[in-house]
Amino acid sequence: MADSMTFILNGKETVYSGSATARLLDVLRNEYNLTGVKCGCKEGECGACSVILDGRLVNSCMTAMGRVAGSGVVTIEGYRETERFKALDKAYASVSAVQCGFCIPGMVLASECILSKNAHPTEEEIREGISGNLCRCTGYNAIVKAIGIAAKEGDGLW
């Protein structure tokens, strides 16, 4: 007889009773309709499915549900309600860092993880922080710039 598990999804306690081996990515998209979490490869190679698990960036395609038991998961749908998101939103918009947009939810959460670790990162640290998030459109310069702007303009938020 299986227990159900609970985890905190975007701030809300959530009960899950499905398979422990299911991908977090699939569960988020299919069961909780959190389609801001994108599937780019299902192999941990592109970062489009990035979410924040207990404060750290992870690939939700590489995470089984059992690993999430008792943990906190934040997706773009939760994060977009924060003040920090607003600072990133403004910064990304100011340099038009969003092109096709498919990498963006993951990229935004990677941005958060860079800044929550270090509120004033160097360009090199920013590049390192998004180095697991592939973007085919921008060449990354605008995204790197946007994160730098958010750090500056959003001073005090992180």
Partner: peptide, 9 residues
């Protein structure tokens, strides 16, 4: 131990 469908924690 948390016992889940297809998993144990």
């Amino acid at each position: 131990v948390t016992i889940l469908a297809n998993g144990f924690v």
